[in-house]
């Protein structure tokens, strides 16, 4: 449909979109250079550290076997009880996962890319929220929405075309930026760090993580778009978004109504990205969390489309 094409062009021609892309690329280049030069340790510097890594690891395993409190990303309940025969093996596994060598070995490991993408995903979602809400908020503010509606009066079509443009723009931008980020960091691992663990399996799971990040950004853009459509302003969507996530989810529901936790946006987003099945929503897979978030986003869009169907446009 031509309207969709027009909205996509409009989305990419916007100043904010260009600004986000330019600033992000500058940040990525800076990060690539910083990591490249920071990851400058000779093997001579590392080898004396090797025994130390073993020491730290052994101490951590011993601590775990004795039931010490671990602030590790695996729920303590998932381990066999203290004193049981399986405890030592489980502790060994747990500590192995923690990549202690990276704590001592300051070189950049290619496997750290997964961590990087996980952290970047929150940032990407915020950017997507901003893009999605301002895409439609700016049009209501400037009044150009009214002009468009005198050109295409079918409001559902207009809303859907714009929503589609917001989603596609957010997804594409986040995917490309992640690609650039991986590309910018890879030389640090390849030439001045370590590429150990860069198996096909690793790259496959990294790609899947990147895809989920792109999906999260698309969802954030869609919800922000819908809220901004209902409030007819960018500021409304930004305020409502941060107010809701921080106050309602963070403080009220999350803390006071534990039974609401499996349905909260932030917790599901964390599960969706990190795949930490134990913590935020026990037993929920990233795919389930993603479906739930998709449902929310479509729900918001539906409400936005219906609300704008009959309202006066000035």
């Amino acid at each position: 449909m031509r309207l969709v094409g027009v909205e996509l062009r409009r989305a990419f021609a916007r100043r904010l979109t260009k600004l986000v892309i330019v600033v992000s690329i500058a940040g990525i280049v800076a990060a690539g250079l910083a990591v490249y030069f920071h990851s400058n340790r000779t093997t001579a510097e590392i080898s004396p550290a090797a025994p130390k890594i073993e020491d730290v690891k052994n101490r951590a395993i011993q601590d775990c076997v004795n039931g010490g409190s671990l602030d590790f990303p695996t729920p303590p309940t998932a381990l066999p009880p203290v004193g049981s025969a399986q405890r030592a093996g489980a502790c060994q596994n747990l500590v192995d996962q923690l990549q202690f060598n990276q704590a001592v070995d300051k070189r950049f490991h290619v496997t750290q890319l997964a961590d990087v993408l996980q952290h970047v995903s929150a940032f990407a979602a915020i950017i997507a929220w901003l893009l999605g809400s301002s895409l439609v908020g700016a049009e209501w503010r400037s009044g150009s929405m009214a002009t468009l509606l005198t050109w295409e009066p079918r409001r559902i079509r207009v809303t859907m075309a714009k929503a589609f443009a917001a989603v596609v723009a957010a997804f594409l931008i986040v995917m490309v930026l992640q690609g650039l980020l991986v590309g910018a960091l890879y030389p640090a691992a390849r030439f001045r760090g370590s590429t150990a663990g860069a198996t096909n399996e690793f790259w496959r799971s990294l790609s899947y993580l990147g895809l989920r990040s792109g999906g999260l950004a698309a969802g954030a853009a869609l919800i922000a778009f819908s809220v901004a459509s209902i409030g007819r302003s960018t500021a409304a969507a930004l305020g409502a978004g941060f107010g809701y996530l921080a106050l309602v989810e963070g403080a009220l529901l999350g803390a006071l109504v534990p039974s609401s936790r499996p349905w909260l946006i932030v917790r599901n987003a964390v599960v969706f990205i990190t795949d930490r099945r134990g913590f935020d929503v026990p037993g929920r897979s990233p795919e389930q969390a993603g479906l739930l978030l998709l449902g929310y986003a479509l729900g918001f869009l539906l409400i936005a489309a219906l609300v704008n169907l009959r309202r006066d446009v000035n």
Binding site: R2, V6, R9, S142, G143, S144, T147, T150, W151
Partner: peptide, 30 residues
């Protein structure tokens, strides 16, 4: 609607796009 041309109050277009781009975007819809 494609047989009607209209202005309602002061015309409003996308503020940071040029006049030409605004018209091209509208035209492209049709």
């Amino acid at each position: 609607i494609d047989r009607i041309g209209s202005i309602v109050e002061t015309p409003t277009f996308f503020p940071t796009f040029s006049g030409r781009r605004n018209l091209r975007l509208l035209g492209r819809v049709d």
